[in-house]
Design a protein around this nucleic acid. Structure first.
Length: 193
DNA sequence: CATGGGATTGACT
DNA sequence: GTCAATCCCATGC
């Protein structure tokens, strides 16, 4: 079942762990979210920290939309805009366990190993065919949608750690990983297994 | 208008 | 472990 806008209209630190176990679907590809990070306008690692600009505007928009941006000139990173409209906050989806359309994912990634298909934010963007065109699209209406956890994923234990690949506000424990998942991006947090 | 720095990945030493 | 690829955007002159 597709998540409604109300799911995202909460503090981002509440939504980020709640997204573990949920399903991201685009076309015939889908995966279960096993790693997220929270970003908020109040801390300098967030693109919203500088205020409303052409780039950051989607973060301040209505919750439940996608925020997609290009990282290092190469990768498309997928976020879900959270918190009330006017608050700049989003959850970065960092890793999935492949669920459907795995052949399609392998073709897009040029790789075979299941754990290599979506175990990083750039990887899952490529595997699911996410592009900058999906920026600001509605995650309740598609083409990219997020659904409630499938059977067996309703009660995921979150391993909390610090965020990856940033240089500012590195100490905040705003990274959430699904306990036991081997599809989480490196470095694996202590206590994952 | 020029510049510098990424919410990354994969290849290579 | 190191490093280049590659481009958008915020910043500063």
């Amino acid at each position: 079942m597709t998540l409604s806008h109300a799911f995202y209209d909460r503090p981002v630190l509440e939504v980020a762990p709640a997204m573990l176990g949920c399903v991201v679907r685009h076309g015939d590809t889908a995966g279960v979210i096993v790693e997220t990070e929270a970003y908020h306008e109040s801390e300098p690692a967030s693109h919203a920290f500088v205020g409303v600009t052409e780039r950051s505007a989607p973060l301040f928009g209505p919750p439940g939309r996608a925020y997609v941006y290009r990282s290092y000139g190469i990768h498309a990173l997928l976020n879900a805009v959270c918190d009330a409209e006017g608050v700049g906050a989003a959850v970065l989806i960092r890793a999935l366990e492949p669920l459907e359309g795995i052949g399609h994912m392998r073709a897009r990634r040029g790789l075979d190993r299941l754990e290599d298909l979506c175990s990083g934010p750039g990887k899952l963007g490529q595997a699911l065919g996410v592009t900058l065109e999906h920026n600001t699209t509605d995650l309740a209406a598609g083409p990219i949608v997020i659904e409630a956890p499938p059977p067996g994923w309703e009660h995921v234990r979150a391993i909390v750690g610090t965020r990856i690949g940033i240089t500012k506000a590195v100490e905040l424990p705003w990274r959430f990983c699904a306990a036991g998942s081997r599809s989480v991006s490196r470095p694996w947090p202590p206590g994952l297994f």
